[in-house]
């Protein structure tokens, strides 16, 4: 066993990295092919309101994050799809309002808020066993939903109009997918924090796309890339004593950059 795995917090951190990569690879694939990166960012930042609320009420932060991120997913989804409001406007409103609720509620709570920073930028080194179980449960839920709605999710991702003509309830399916993104956000807040969630939801899947021939292939490869980025980032942060979440993101971003610069030639060749 490598020396850093002798510590329990380090073993938990690695388990968290691997378990969260499953959700990242699967849901990130939909985020990338449907271009839902910005809406995912909106959901994540709205969840800060939930952190503020649970802090104010003295509850476990997850008790606030889960309802807030689900509400953001449904709210942004309904506003932009039913109420003829431009999607980026709806996202911007939720994003800022959620953050504001968080800031005000934390301000109203007496005393200093010590863990705030870890929710914004993640702290994978403090993941308790109970969180690992929760992440595992959410992973199972996500896999089950994606397996059940396999052909419907593929259809709305590739050609939403055709899905609608074929009799699918596209708005409901869309909202369901946004809720799955919200649950993935809940997982990722622990690992990399609210601010950096979008990176892990998009980069592993985007890199995987250049090497995949099917959506399932992209999910599997995205999960693998996410694992590699998180473990490499975690190890580097241990060796050089850096912030873990930020190091994970920078490893991912570096690979993304290299792939974007040198990988495009390959995709263009296979396209002909």
């Amino acid at each position: 066993m490598p020396d850093f795995l002798h510590f329990e917090f380090m073993r938990n951190a690695f388990l968290a990295a691997i378990l969260s990569s499953v959700a990242c690879g699967i849901i990130g694939t939909y985020v990338v092919v449907r271009r839902l990166g910005f809406i995912s960012g909106g959901i994540a930042h709205t969840a800060f309101g939930g952190i503020g609320l649970s802090y104010y009420l003295g509850l476990n932060p997850l008790a606030g994050i889960i309802p807030f991120s689900l509400a953001a997913a449904i709210g942004i989804g309904l506003l932009s799809r039913k109420a003829r409001i431009a999607e980026d406007t709806a996202i911007g409103a939720f994003w800022a309002a959620g953050m504001s609720i968080g800031v005000i509620l934390i301000g109203l709570t007496p005393g200093y808020a010590p863990n705030l920073f870890s929710y914004l930028f993640g702290n994978i080194l403090t993941v308790p066993d109970s969180d690992l179980q929760l992440i595992m449960g959410l992973d199972c839920l996500i896999i089950a939903m994606v397996w059940l709605f396999d052909k419907e999710f593929l259809a709305i991702s590739f050609d939403e109009e055709y899905a609608r003509i074929s009799g699918l309830k596209t708005v409901a399916l869309d909202l369901l997918m946004l809720c799955l993104i919200a649950l993935t956000v809940v997982i990722m807040v622990r690992v990399v924090g609210i601010v950096m969630v979008i990176a892990l939801l998009t980069i592993p899947a985007a890199v995987a796309r250049s090497f995949s021939r099917s959506l399932y292939g992209m999910m599997a490869l995205g999960t693998l890339f996410s694992c590699i980025f998180s473990i490499a980032g975690l190890w580097l942060s241990w060796v050089f004593d850096l912030a873990s979440g930020a190091t994970i993101i920078l490893v991912a971003a570096l690979v993304f950059l290299v792939n974007a610069l040198f990988g495009t030639g390959k995709t263009r060749r296979t396209a002909c």
Binding site: V33, K151, L154, A155, S157, F158, D159, Y162, A163, S166, G167, L168, R209, S212, R213, S214, L215, G217, M218
Partner: peptide
């Protein structure tokens, strides 16, 4: 989009 012609045509069965 990583999808084959066959998978697109299968959508016709939706």
């Amino acid at each position: 989009f990583p999808i084959s012609a066959m998978e697109v045509v299968l959508m016709g069965r939706l």
